[in-house]
Write a protein that binds this DNA or RNA. Structure first.
Length: 971
DNA sequence: CCGCAGCGCGTTTTT
DNA sequence: CGCGCTGCGG
């Protein structure tokens, strides 16, 4: 092992074993959440290159998302340097296949200018195909939705079944009278026929859909072994989410070397709906009998109480193979369950709580430390409103939403057509954009004529334009003139090598796209912004390409993949295969609360995670067929949290315009009941944690951050208190069932409409001191207690601690409604609120859209609408109701020195006796109630501004926490 | 061909 | 409630 191998020293025993396992064999790394699998994967790659002397270009690393690929690339660059990393074959299955297919298109009989067809376009094609069968189906009493049909075809492709295979399978079903689980066999035949036509359509259009990229990849690699002979080792991340085709792909790439490393966790398998096969883990061991397994069971991410609760969720699955997972981290704050009556209250709770936590952590949390994880995107509505109202900067990692917007798709369609004139989905999209008086009828005629002449629609129009072909009776030549001219101009520019960003600019100019938006779209301004955003994106891609080309040149990488691609084609491919959030590594995103789905949160982590809508219709999701997968999904979401985890729900949900009652998610209900009947300490606490010095110490310890200075905490807490925010009244879970009585008190959300509207004045938000680099006396202690610095100690791992349980919880009293927190116990007044304050610059540039594509509009007005002002004192809430004697928080285990007592113990749900239990059940107000300040200026003035701090030592590098650019969030 | 009004429907997850 | 689709009139 040479001296470059210092990276291996950072690994624990198991990680090291995984990273350095015999490179010429197959290996499965089964890694629980937060067990450092990315680190192991990158270390293994570095090991292969530095110690085993495998050339980087002979290594293939596959990730599930582009984001994961980018992160891995970043980490590897630190270990290996740019040059070597650029030579790695790295990316998602889809992007890798696309790159190889461009280069070797001829070998699998496709044109090299193929267009990647997105799901929307696929669906449109299928809709059109189904339309011709509508009557036939109806006559036979059958019905087939385009979406359903598309998904069946996609699933077939995910199993590596061609249209013919599928039809045969359908036939077999018919004869044996065994119908497939999804549909009756009579429909299956229809789907098979549509599948045949769909394939033909794609080929005619020189298009591949997402699944085709994989299928043709398999064809290429298995039919032409020379195209993968470079591969000496392939590594696959998130293996539990691969489907059969991806497995075949992996196998064909590994065909000659047979050296494979995979990382996976069956507990985190959440893509079954997309035909992922957890079975692949077993299949791999059958196909490669010498496959070794390494288990990574130590969690470095979360506090013990978060891990405990998460495991309690996932282990409800009786079929699950029990796996151990432990942490050396302290218990920390137990996960919070907070239930309210209305969805708006739930959103408001989250927004207020984020602010409260920021204050209580005295600037050690920034907005980017918070994530709100949703079951589906549409749940973001209320949250956006609430966050906007509170002036909390946030971003929606809506996945690919950006590339699905009308204006973005329009522009892309033009460019697709430039690159691939045969691609009629793009033609159909833009032929009448901007309006050229070409409607359904004209279009139909064009399509029919094109079909007859065996030409693409664009070719036909060019013929008519050049008068090589006759015009139609009502002339269409006039209508299409500008269109053809535009296309020709763009094609010429593209041929001359013009980059995509300039091409877009030229296009926008030629078709007067801004005018078109202004005329047709009510929210044309944001849409125009998006178009400009696309140009920026294009520029970034261009620059990246140039950089890559430069490093490639320097390294004389012969086996490189992307050399021959035109910048336009490159850009289109990246656009189709990446989601908006992928390249979102900008610092700006660090300053924003992240809202995203549980699915796309996979592999990510945040100090604070909040999961709303933990109700019976969402977890498991009503329409989901696989309850176990839903449970795992919640598990994945919970295990994203490092220090604090919140589950919230409202007892009613708006469905179809009116409120419907909804119960607590059964996954959580079961846990609550369990704890109650077994008289166990609840795994979820039902009041918001009041963070004390020791809590901050533990949190900062887990996050490997310096602790805040107490004066800072006091200042920010006071600032928060002055905002007068209160948590909406809580509905307590009780063992007997709930809720007893709905809350009668109306709960007006603090900022009035008037304030929300006049929010242009940002003064009312407190400009709090920025956070320098404090000297942190606890730092040494923090690192001493941090998990990583504890030497692996095997006996403690296996030895079960005495299953001792302290009878802690008194049966809960029949209180159902609890007022808000007792933190802001003064009257709500004309307190200037930061309601909806958000400087234009910090507003998300990718606008907040509703879940549906294209026609969605910015929905800011709703936020303002929902608050009704009730200038009544909320004091009653604070004073009248005593804190319920909720169970003591076992997280409050600490030693007077502030040194958290840390035991390395398996998480069994049974607790060792705490040496000292601090009762947190009657939190005191942070400060005596004071009358609200008379004016905004006072607020600003009283804020402790400009407190200068000494610069201290830099935080531990391992923590990855740099407060160089860090500004304390402004409340 | 385009814009508007009315109606019915229904809210997943992603490369 | 908001979206998309349909049918009608300019």
């Amino acid at each position: 092992m040479d001296q470059e191998a210092s990276f291996l020293l950072a690994l624990n025993e198991e990680q090291l074993r995984a990273a350095t396992h015999n490179p010429s064999s197959t290996l499965q790394i089964l890694a629980g959440p937060g067990s450092g699998k990315t680190r192991v994967l990158t270390s293994r790659i570095a090991h292969l290159i530095l110690n085993c002397h495998i050339p980087p270009s002979a290594i293939c690393a596959v990730t599930f998302t582009n984001k994961a690929a980018n992160e891995m690339r970043e980490r590897l660059t630190k270990l290996l340097g740019k040059t070597r990393v650029s030579q790695l074959k790295m990316g998602t299955f889809h992007s890798l296949c696309a790159r190889f297919l461009r280069k070797f298109a001829k070998l699998v009989d496709i044109p090299d200018n193929f267009t990647v067809c997105d799901a929307g376009e696929s669906k449109k094609i299928i809709t059109a195909l189904l339309k011709t069968r509508e009557k036939d189906l109806k006559a036979r009493g059958l019905s087939l939705e385009p979406g359903q049909c598309a998904s069946l075809i996609s699933k077939a492709k995910s199993r590596c079944l061609s249209a013919q295979d599928y039809l045969e399978e359908a036939k077999a079903h018919m004869h044996s009278k065994t119908s497939s689980a999804d549909i009756p066999s009579s429909l299956e035949t229809v789907v098979g026929e549509v599948y045949v036509q769909y394939e033909a359509t794609l080929r005619r259009n020189s298009a591949l859909d997402f699944d085709d990229l994989l299928i043709y990849g398999v064809k290429l690699f298995s039919g032409h072994p020379l195209t993968v002979s470079w591969c000496q080792h392939i590594l696959v991340d998130e293996f539990q989410d691969t489907n059969i085709t991806q497995y075949e792909l992996m196998r064909s790439i590994a065909e000659s070397a047979r050296c494979i490393t995979i990382v996976g966790d069956p507990d985190q398998s959440i893509y079954g709906w997309r035909a992922a096969e957890v079975e692949n883990l077993a299949k791999m061991r059958r196909d490669f009998p010498n496959t070794a397994q390494v288990f990574l069971e130590e969690n470095y991410r979360s506090t013990a109480s978060i891990l405990d609760a998460s495991l309690e969720i996932v282990s409800q699955d009786t079929k699950r193979i029990n796996k151990s997972l432990y942490t050396a981290h302290p218990d920390g704050i137990s996960p919070v369950l907070y239930q309210v009556q209305k969805e708006q209250e739930e959103a408001a709770f989250i927004a207020i709580e984020i602010k409260r936590l920021v204050a209580q952590m005295g600037g050690s949390f920034r907005w980017g430390d918070f994530a709100i994880l949703l079951r589906y995107n549409a749940l973001s509505r209320n949250l956006e409103s609430a966050l906007q109202r509170e002036g909390i900067p946030h971003r929606i990692l809506g996945g690919r939403r950006f590339f699905e917007r009308l204006e973005v798709k329009d522009v892309l369609a033009y460019l697709q057509l430039v690159d691939n004139p045969a691609f009629s989905p793009a033609f159909l999209r833009v032929i009448n954009v901007p309006g050229r008086g070409i409607g359904e009828k004209t279009l139909l005629e064009i399509q029919q004529r094109a079909e007859k002449a065996e030409k693409s629609p664009l070719q036909l129009l060019e013929g008519i334009f050049d008068m090589r072909l006759p015009d139609n009776k009502p002339s269409i030549r006039k209508k299409i003139t500008t269109f053809v001219q535009v296309m020709r101009k763009l094609q010429k520019s593209a041929k001359e090598g013009m980059g995509p960003s300039d091409l877009i600019s030229q296009l926008l100019d030629l078709v007067q796209y801004e005018d078109h938006l202004r005329k047709t779209q009510p929210d044309w301004e944001t849409r125009w912004e998006n178009v400009k955003e696309l140009i920026t994106f294009a520029k970034e891609v261009e620059e990246q390409n140039l950089r890559d080309a430069a490093t490639r040149e320097a390294s004389a990488d012969v086996s490189s993949l992307d050399v021959e691609m035109s910048p336009l084609r490159q850009f289109l491919q990246v656009s189709m295969l990446s989601s908006a959030g992928d390249n979102d590594t900008e610092e700006s995103s660090q300053e924003k609360v992240t809202i995203t789905t549980c699915h796309s949160a996979k592999g990510l982590e945040w100090p604070v995670v909040m999961i709303p809508s933990v109700d019976a219709s969402t977890y498991p999701f009503i329409r989901s067929e696989d309850e176990d997968e839903e449970r795992r999904l919640l598990y994945v979401a919970c295990t994203r949290a490092k220090a604090l985890l919140y589950l919230t729900r409202s007892t009613t949900r708006m469905v179809a315009g009116d409120q419907k009652a909804r119960g607590l998610s059964k996954f959580i209900q079961a846990i609550m009941e369990n704890c109650a009947t077994q008289n166990k300490m609840p795994l979820f606490r039902q009041h918001v944690p009041h963070l004390e010095l020791e809590d901050r110490a533990i949190i900062c310890n887990v996050l490997q951050r310096p602790e805040p200075v107490e004066s800072e905490v006091e200042g920010m807490v006071e600032g928060f208190r002055r905002l007068g925010r209160e948590h909406p009244p809580q509905i307590l879970w009780t063992p007997a069932g709930q809720p007893l009585n709905p809350v009668q008190a109306t709960w007006p959300f603090a900022p009035s409409l008037a304030h929300a509207a006049s929010a242009s004045n940002p003064i009312h938000s407190l400009p709090l001191p920025t956070f320098g680099r404090p000297v942190v006396p606890h730092l040494a202690r923090s690192s001493a207690t941090s998990a990583r610095s504890i030497a692996p100690c095997d006996e403690s791992r296996s030895s079960a601690l005495p299953s001792y349980r302290e009878p802690t919880t008194q049966p809960l009293p029949p209180v159902t409604v609890v007022p808000a927190s007792s933190f802001s116990s003064h009257t709500l007044r004309k307190e200037p609120s930061p309601a909806s304050f958000q400087p234009a610059s910090s507003r998300p540039s990718k606008p907040i859209f509703s879940s549906t594509e294209e026609t969605s509009t910015l929905n800011m007005t709703n936020a303002a609408r929902s608050g009704t002002r009730t200038p009544q004192s909320k004091r009653a809430f604070d004073l009248a109701v005593a804190r319920p004697p909720v169970a003591q928080d076992r997280s409050k285990v600490f030693q007077p020195s502030g040194n958290a007592s840390i035991s390395r113990r398996p998480l069994t749900g049974q607790l060792p006796t705490p040496p000292l239990v601090k009762d947190n059940s009657t939190p005191k107000p942070l400060a005596a109630p004071t009358p609200p300040p008379p004016s905004t200026n006072t607020v600003a003035a009283t804020a402790p501004q400009g407190v200068k701090r000494r610069l201290g030592m830099a935080p531990r590098a391992a923590g990855g926490y740099s407060n160089k650019k860090f500004k304390a969030p402004t409340l």
